[in-house]
Design a protein around this nucleic acid. Structure first.
Length: 845
RNA sequence: GGGCGCUUAGCUCAGCGGUAGAGCAUCACCUUGACAUGGUGGGGGUCACAGGUUCAAUCCCUGUAGCGCCCA
């Protein structure tokens, strides 16, 4: 039996500050990385590429927590692959965001009392460019605060000349192939923004509407009652439809009704669209103002007059001769007109009833205004043709979604894809490369000269006024940023890219369209894996919104707790595809992890730990050292597997347990007596080695604190952790034996602690530990680890039990042996008996 | 109406055909020499419900309920 190690005060020096100060360190480290060229891709290198295209944030954007999530995830993958020695390209850039940007600048002009139209197209556009020059860099500056490490020198903007050339090339080619065309059909018209928008930009909102039942007189004296949610559009009705099998109305099919108010005569047609179960079973048909009615109108060859203008006001020009009441509606807003029409119908006793009818009404996602289906001429892209190879690419596994369930969503949409309306009645964007001759002939060309050549000399051409949907240029992002249509070394090396990281909300807007365009023009997939992450919500799981006032500002969180704490928080919370719940409290708690790492390193430094390049893990002899090296090896393997499988949450958790559990709770505690022993050198070397591995392992997750410690300990040159190699296999001599031995010690200490705690032994009192039936090897272990056991389990001595167990001893079983803790004199036995009696009574009650 | 997902400790979530896990919260104890942004220990679960497959189901299958999202 040995006495406990003597009390000793340590006055070893440390040069590390008491705590990590992110505010001062982050900016300095970031500059250091950027200046060192660590972010730079190198097309000339022989290293295998790894590429991520950043989802270009809107140039009007400012950093929100969604960016914090998506950029952290991307930066983790990027830094991981960079450390693995890949030639990494993280392509940054911003999106011109047609509608959003135009709205921002128009709002500014509004304050000056000027309108866009007063300025005229050219002046307005120069104002937008001016705004972009002044304010367009906000978002990219803010991305730096997250520690994001893209190749900034390669930053692109969707309206750069090169990218615009790509847009024109794609437009002209698709037009030549018949895949882009003009068509007059119903579009979703935003009456506020005064532009067409695509199906995707429409969101349906549940609205408390009404169902009006209106009497339409049929020739021969009968009447038919139609049900509608939009009475005002009856001005442009061109038929009433009933189901062909509907016995109630069968006899009326083919007869004419007199449309109330306008007094026009329109037919009753048979069409399966008229659901006998809905409303009255008879439905009015307004082909120019309803998508379903438009289809019915086409099937029955009905006229399609419009009765609303582009502001959503009543327009009578196409309706022919009209009675006075209707003429009085001209120019009135559609909702005002609805009231007047309903009142008039009521006055004429044509209104049978009004039923409350909650239903979904389409709204513009930007303007929030009800969408008006309008018959206009627009440019369309034949998405159905482009979708076929894109569907096959996912079916065949050439592109994989993670989590895979999103493939279902993708397929469902792609297999029922509609023509994509790509023209927008805006000024800010890529102007449609089409020119019109005075006779209306259209010439699609890459530029005005080419158009002129096509039209012939002397023909006066005017360019199409419209611009393209913003998503048209985003769809080309994976190759347009690399210089396409030029043949560039970048295109050669980095296409196809590896991973796309984005949210599910833009699978259709962006992901699907990139896949379609890329396959068509590059003849290869744009990326191999689509990693879809969830949404960031508040602590309660609610969506963040300004109106709820629960929006978290990532910059505020960074200022308060540091970027590493924020990154760790979002990464750890991001189970595959799950929504991420985030609150200041969570980030604050996780800052504790950063502090823990810092303090562990600080303690090691105090004890003379510094990197020893001559140290080889396979030469480690002490079980303690072999054990921690082996544990580290397993953590490295787990973390690498997790990152390979896009399991960022599991990666974060592995790091957490390795550092806080194995390294701090056990290894460092075991090492404390070791630092004062003859084994100190190997323990120091091992500690330094393991710390070096862990800093590398965690760098993608928490880049700042790890780089700071790496630099401070001198593992490499300043700012070199970002470029350090990812930890590989760690050779450990007979890891199995070391693992068994240390695990036994851990179990022993845990058992003693549990028993002592349950028996309420005051920590200040040490107790002997006796081992009954212990094998000689077990006793030898106990002896060898005595100092650690003494410290950590408050053991005064440890040895075999000789004779019979003492009275009043607590017991626990560990392996073949029984641990015996004599408690005589350590606890108040009477108090303990009372406590147990009380517990027993409670259990029996 | 169609599709997808979720339901495991008070909360947030892992897990997996074979003895239920983590973090946070909670309770008790501890100014032990890196860290009170800390340490140690405890309590706490019919794994939504009902069937089925199986030697064995929290896990696989079917259904039900509740919640969420997408599409119409």
């Amino acid at each position: 039996m040995r006495a406990p190690f003597p009390r000793r005060r340590s006055f070893a020096l440390t040069t590390l500050d008491k705590t990590f100060e992110p505010a001062s360190a982050e900016a300095r480290l970031y500059r250091g990385w950027e200046d060192s060229g660590a972010f730079t891709a190198n097309p000339a290198s022989n290293a295998a590429p790894y590429t991520i295209m950043i989802p270009p944030p809107n140039v009007t954007g400012s950093l929100h927590v969604g960016h914090a999530l998506t950029m952290t995830l991307q930066d983790i993958f990027i830094r991981f692959r960079r450390m693995q020695g890949r030639d990494v390209l993280w392509q940054p850039g911003t999106d011109h965001a047609g509608i959003a940007t135009q709205m921002v600048v128009e709002r500014l002009l509004d304050k000056e009392g000027v309108s866009r139209k007063q300025l005229g197209r050219e002046t307005f556009l120069s104002r937008v460019w001016q705004w972009k020059a002044e304010s367009g860099g906000t978002i990219t500056q803010q991305l730096r605060r997250l520690g994001a490490s893209p190749d900034w020198a390669r930053e692109r903007f969707t309206m750069d000349e090169g990218l615009s050339a790509a847009v024109r090339e794609v437009f002209c080619t698709l037009h030549d192939q018949g895949l882009i065309y003009q068509d007059k059909r119903l579009v979703n018209w935003d009456t506020v923004l005064q532009t067409a928008i695509s199906d995707l930009e429409v969101e349906s909102r549940e609205t408390k509407g009404s169902m009006w039942h209106i009497r339409y007189p049929v020739e021969g004296g009968e009447e038919i009652i139609v049900a509608t949610t939009r009475p005002e559009t009856m001005l442009a009705d061109t038929a009433v439809a009933v189901h062909p099998e509907n016995e109630k109305f069968k006899h009326l099919i083919g007869k004419l009704v007199t449309l109330p108010l306008t007094e026009r005569r329109i037919p009753i047609v048979a069409d399966e669209y008229a659901d006998p179960e809905k409303g009255t079973g008879a439905v009015k048909i307004t082909p120019a103002h309803d998508f379903n009615d438009f289809e019915v109108g086409k099937r029955h060859n009905l006229p399609m007059p419009s009765m609303l203008d582009r502001q959503g006001r009543i327009m009578l020009a196409e309706l022919g001769e009209l009675p006075e009441f209707v003429r009085g509606l001209e120019g009135k807003d559609r909702f005002a007109a609805r009231k007047e029409i309903v009142a008039e119908l009521e006055a004429r006793e044509l209104l049978v009833e009004v039923k409350p009818h909650p239903h979904a009404v389409p709204h513009g996602d930007r303007s929030g205004t009800p969408i008006e289906p309008l018959l206009t001429t627009q440019w369309y892209c034949n998405a159905e043709v482009l979708a076929q190879p894109a569907i096959r690419a996912v079916e065949s596994g050439r592109i994989k979604f993670v989590p895979q369930q999103w493939e279902n969503t993708y397929f469902a949409w792609m297999r029922d894809i509609q023509p994509w309306c790509i023209s927008r009645q805006l000024w800010w964007g890529h102007r449609i490369p089409a020119w019109y001759a005075p006779d209306g002939k259209v010439f699609v060309a890459r530029n005005a000269e080419e158009a002129q050549a096509k039209a012939g000399p002397g023909v006066e051409l005017t360019q199409d006024e419209d611009v393209l949907d913003t998503w048209f240029s985003s769809a080309l992002w994976p190759f347009s940023t690399l210089g396409w249509p030029e043949k560039t070394p970048e295109l050669d090396k980095y296409y196809p890219t590896d991973t796309l990281v984005t949210g599910f909300d833009i699978i259709f807007f962006w992901v699907a369209r990139m896949i379609m365009m890329s396959l068509h023009f590059m003849d290869d997939v744009p990326f191999r894996t689509v990693y879809i992450h969830g949404l960031v919500r508040d602590e309660k799981g609610q969506k963040m919104s300004k109106s709820k006032g629960n929006v978290l500002d990532p910059l505020t969180l960074i200022d308060a707790y540091g970027t590493d704490a924020l990154r760790y928080s979002v990464a750890a919370a991001s189970g595959q595809g799950r929504d991420v719940k985030l609150g200041a409290k969570i980030v604050e708690t996780n800052r504790g992890f950063i502090t823990k790492i810092w303090n562990a390193a600080r303690f090691l430094e105090m004890n003379g730990v510094k990197p020893n390049p001559a140290f080889k893990p396979e030469d480690a002899k002490l079980p303690l050292c072999r054990w921690i090296l082996d544990a580290t090896e397993r953590a490295v393997t787990q973390a690498t597997e997790a990152l390979d499988g896009f399991q960022v949450g599991a990666y974060a958790q592995t790091c957490y347990h390795m550092v806080w559990g194995d390294f701090c709770d056990w290894f460092i505690e075991f090492a404390k007596p070791g630092f004062a022993s003859g084994d100190a050198a190997e323990i120091r070397d091992t500690a330094a080695y393991v710390l070096g591995v862990l800093l590398r392992l965690m760098h993608p997750l928490i880049p700042f604190v790890t780089e700071e410690l790496w630099d401070h300990f001198g593992y490499g040159a300043e700012y070199s952790l970002i470029a350090a190699p990812w930890p590989g296999e760690i050779a450990v001599n007979d890891a199995e034996t070391a693992r068994r031995e240390v695990q036994w010690v851990i179990d022993l200490i845990s058992e003693i602690r549990t028993v002592r705690s349950e028996m309420n032994v005051p920590p200040s009192l040490k107790s002997p530990v006796l081992l009954q039936d212990a094998a000689p090897a077990t006793l030898a272990r106990a002896e060898a680890w005595f100092e650690a056991i003494s410290r950590m389990a408050r053991a005064s001595e440890i040895g075999p039990l000789t004779g019979t167990p003492p009275k009043n001893a607590a017991q626990a079983v560990l392996g073949e042996a029984t641990i015996i803790l004599p408690l005589e004199g350590l606890i108040d036995l009477d108090a303990e008996r009372k406590r147990l009696a009380g517990a027993l009574a409670k259990a029996q009650a």
